[in-house]
Structure formats: C-alpha cells, structure tokens
Amino acid sequence: MKSVVIIIGILIIAVYVSPLYKSKINLGNIFGIILGTFVIICSVFFEQIKKIYTYPAGKILIILFFGLFIIFLTLFFITLFKIINAIKCNAKNETTVIVLGCRVKGSVPSKALVKRCRAAAEYMKKNQKAVAILSGGQGVDEDISEAECMYGLMTSCGIDKERLIKEEKSTSTYENMLYSKQIIDTLDLSENIAIATSEYHMLRAKMYAQKVGLIPYSLPAKSIPILRVAYFTREVFGIWAMKIKKALQK
C-alpha cells in the first residue's frame, strides 16, 4: 500500500513538472509539486505519524491539520468546477468580441495567443457584423504589443482590418476589461460581449468583465493538453486572490 501511495505522489509531481519545458513555472506547478511531495512524505513517515497520533496533543494537531486540508480540497474542487463550467461556449450573435492578449516572445505569438485569435476569427466569419477589440499591452520582454501581434494574426486569418480595434495599454485581465469598456463606450458598441480567451482563463475574464459593467459570453480557445492541469490549478488560486482582494476593498 505504501508503494502505491508513493507512486501516486510521484505521478502527481510528474503531471505538474512535465509542462515546464513549454512554459514558465507558476503557482499551479508549485502547488502540484508540493501536493505530490506531501503525499510521499505522509506515506514514508506513516508509522511516525501514527505514533504522534497516540499523544493527545499530537492527535489534536493531526486532526486539525487534516481537517483544514479537507476543507481546502473541498473549496479547491468547488472553484475548479466553476472554472470548468464557464468553459462552455455560449457566444452566438454578439457583435462585440474582446480577444485577450497572451505572451508574445519578441514578436512571435505564443500558441495560446494563436488559438485565441483563431477562435475569434472563426466566430467573426460567422458573424459578419461583429468587431473585435484586441486587448493587450507590451511587456518588457516583448518587441511589439500583444494587440499588434493579434492584429497580424487576425488579418492573416482573413478578418478585415476595419473590424479590428487595438487596445494597447492593458497589463492585466482587469485592465483588459476596463480599457476595452472605455473603447466600447466611446464607439457606442454593444456591451454584450463575446470573450475569446483560453478555456482555463474564461471564468476570471468573465468576472472582471462583469465588474466593469459588461455582459460576457464565452468564446473559449482550447489550451495545450499538457498545460491544462497546471493552468486550471493556477486559475483556482487566481479566483481566490480576486475574491480576497474584493473582500478587503469593502
């Protein structure tokens, strides 16, 4: 039994470490590595933990720790379910599309950014009245803004440049929505928006859209399979951080 648990711990670590050859380490990877290590440690030192449990103080500490751990996992999976539930594509005939920026390597788009633009382009070909706000500023390691990179991708997909609006100031998801809302107000565009972003990012994007007064619908882009576990995990903590920040501002 101990060997089985150790193998499970190693597999958890492997699942969260394997994406690192394609992306930078994030909170999702860190959490998975810690979780896998925790499983292995509990298995290896199971007998010692049992001895500690025989003492009253040790028993209280262990029950408290694992009780909190169960609460943590319960909240984690509830949030994860909400993230997954937000993925379902429900954008139909919205005439305003917001395409969210993603990493640009110099001037070369990341695969995630390409997928977001393709999802938006396919939607706009079916909805000829739709216009797209390409939202994303320029990072310190980017030669061009993410909006400029998306502009090139969208036009190469056959979308007329007259239907594309660049928003190049934003540096976060909240700013994506805030500055896009300003453009929507200025140009008198529809506040019913289709958000084109990676599937794991959809819930947080929709929450920020609602915060600035927009009515969001999902237009998800498939993420790279090997990255999904780590990125979905990261989003759980992103949602929690967003809610904590909101609570502290009240």
Rank of each mutant, 00 (worst) to 15 (best):
K161G: 11
I224Q: 12
C42M: 13
I10Q: 09
K169N: 15
K222L: 14
S43Y: 02
L178N: 05
Q48V: 12
P56L: 01
E94V: 10
A130Q: 03
M207L: 13
E142Q: 13
S43P: 07
V15C: 04
S107C: 13
F38G: 04
L153M: 14
E168L: 14
F81R: 05
I144V: 15
K2G: 15
T54G: 03
Y208V: 01
S156E: 13
L75R: 04
G9P: 10
R234G: 00
D185L: 10
A194H: 07
R228S: 08
K105P: 02
H201V: 08
M124R: 06
D185F: 05
A112D: 13
E167Q: 11
A120F: 05
G67L: 08
D141T: 14
V39Y: 05
L11W: 12
L153G: 05
A112I: 08
T233Y: 00
P109A: 15
G139Q: 13
G106F: 00
V39A: 08
A196I: 13
I78Y: 08
K166V: 04
V4R: 04
L35V: 13
S145T: 15
R103F: 11
V229E: 07
P225H: 08
L27R: 07
I10V: 15
Y123F: 14
F232Q: 05
A132S: 10
K166T: 06
A194N: 08
K92Y: 03
V4H: 01
E168R: 15
N127E: 10
G213Q: 02
G136R: 09
K243I: 11
